[in-house]
Nucleic acid binder design. Sequence first.
DNA 1: CTAATAGTGTCTTTCAGACATTATCCT
DNA 2: AGGATAATGTCTGAAAGACACTATTAG
Lengths: 216, 216
Amino acid sequence: MHLTDYPRPSVAVDVAVLTVHDETLKVLAVPHRLGRPALPGTFLHQGENLADAATRALRDKAGVEGAAVHQLRMFDDPHRDDRGWVVSMAHGTTVPSDQIPQNAMLFACDGPEVKDLAFDHYDMTTLAVTDLRERYGRHPDPDHLLGESFTVLELRRLYEIVYDRALPKDSFRRQIIDTLDPTGALSATGSGRPAEMFRRRDGVELPRSATALLVG
Amino acid sequence: MHLTDYPRPSVAVDVAVLTVHDETLKVLAVPHRLGRPALPGTFLHQGENLADAATRALRDKAGVEGAAVHQLRMFDDPHRDDRGWVVSMAHGTTVPSDQIPQNAMLFACDGPEVKDLAFDHYDMTTLAVTDLRERYGRHPDPDHLLGESFTVLELRRLYEIVYDRALPKDSFRRQIIDTLDPTGALSATGSGRPAEMFRRRDGVELPRSATALLVG
DNA sequence: CTAATAGTGTCTTTCAGACATTATCCT
DNA sequence: AGGATAATGTCTGAAAGACACTATTAG
């Protein structure tokens, strides 16, 4: 039997775009023909790889550019799409909220609306959040949600949102400070002592104990 | 455009079967039409899901039954297979060596032969080993490479093979002992004090500090 | 000065890691 | 008894976490 003789599923990609908006971790959704909002997705084109398809879906359906996507897992229930046999590779990515179009739908990842997403897109979102937490537990802001430079306070606020828990300010600082490079600059503060600015050092790993602090 | 009008890649599955044999972590390979050995794999059948296809490949190509497979990632380079457009979902699984047929090919995961596997199967193997280490760092022998009950020494030996490093016997014991249930039985020892036997407690997680001990 | 926020010194408790000692089997 | 292996007691150094103190800005 030649390989072209095998029946083949349609192959789709979907992308869970996570962002921090209003102090909350949110996921981007787009309108879908069935009424229920869905993650941006598309079918794989001839000769295209999955990441390229996901990036294309992100641009065409959500107006988001320049985000690096990564695979989460393949959703392969043969009956997950009533239009036919469609398997879909769930992808994750994270973008700062200012790179998301104003008119986009954003749902809180732990909110009730996200459960109403089309298909199995709620499960994809859950997976993306778990994945985000694992990656942030290993590296300091690996997805560059903060700009090139930031204060320790800004970083801690971000982690409190990602992990949805309060983090002790002094322990947090001591855990991450050695993985950051000081820029020398100080933050333009409102009042109070100005904070030092830091930047990421590439390839640096957080200490194992930091993961314990974050997860709790 | 209707979904059936999209060009579709052939979808394959491959399985990296890991086992411990001769005190070494090895991967199972099978003969392949191109000469170079390959991981057992197959094409997805109509209406089948990926895990079922992988399990079928395991049974038909390698004679291994009853192993639970899990997805690693999709290898999707459009030119990875010169027969045409074939994407393949790499799967991982682990089986005790006594469940592997005698005539099977086993390659040391860190040996030179594994690099000669067909297609991108070397990368798949590397991914399976990384995945194994992550999972063993979180749970005590989650893949049941040891039997239902075992001694702390047997467990430590296993971990030394999985992580390819010596582990201090007393620290190791204290790290994992609270995650195990004593059976009350003692090991039939050659000479010396017999060791206590333990069994896994389901759902139990290793402490975060254990991961640090293991990874080093 | 006071208010406000950033950053650090210090104490306590916990624990990994090393080492030594005790415990329990065998011949 | 003596040998061998399992298991545990103990010490030390390191570090997390809590708390309080100092430092540096604005007004």
